[in-house]
Amino acid sequence: MPVPKSEFENRPPCDFYTPAELLENDQMYTVYEIARLLQGLEAEAEIEPETEDVLLDWAIPWIMTNANDLVVAEPRSDDEPGYYGVREDDTDDE
């Protein structure tokens, strides 16, 4: 149920990182690592599965919204997720 804005003392703008601000140019990241980074955690941080599920709710739309600025790599094996990285320029594979 919606609540009045007045119930919240602090209401900063809803700002998200750009891919260039969040990710290192020479690295590829899983959606799980991106989810952690969006919350200010280290990419390798150990978190509870329930917390990870909530963080993925933020990371997946972020990836979709920023798709034009990202490159994707297929998993290296069947038990590994895909990887995302910053699109540096038009020399990245298409």
Rank of each mutant, 00 (worst) to 15 (best):
E80P: 00
L38P: 02
A43M: 07
K5Y: 11
E33L: 05
E21Y: 06
I60E: 15
E52A: 13
A35D: 05
D53M: 09
A67D: 10
L38M: 10
G40N: 10
T91L: 12
E48D: 14
A67H: 08
A20I: 06
C14N: 14
A73M: 14
F16I: 15
E21M: 13
T65Q: 11
F16S: 10
T30L: 07
L38Y: 07
T18C: 05
D89P: 06
L22I: 06
G85Q: 02
L55P: 00
A20P: 01
E21Q: 15
F8Q: 12
A45D: 11
Y83N: 00
E46Y: 05
Y17I: 04
E24L: 06
L22N: 05
E50F: 14
T91Y: 05
T91M: 13
P13G: 12
Y17Q: 11
S6Y: 10
P4K: 15
A67T: 03
A20G: 01
E42P: 00
E44S: 13
D57V: 14
D53L: 12
L55V: 00
E9D: 10
N68D: 12
E24S: 05
E21N: 07
E74P: 00
E9S: 09
G85A: 06
L55N: 09
D89W: 09
V86H: 03
R11F: 06
V72H: 11
I60C: 07
L38V: 07
D90V: 07
L70P: 02
G85L: 02
M28Y: 10
E74G: 00
A67K: 14
G85S: 01
W58R: 09
P4T: 10
P19Q: 04
E21D: 11
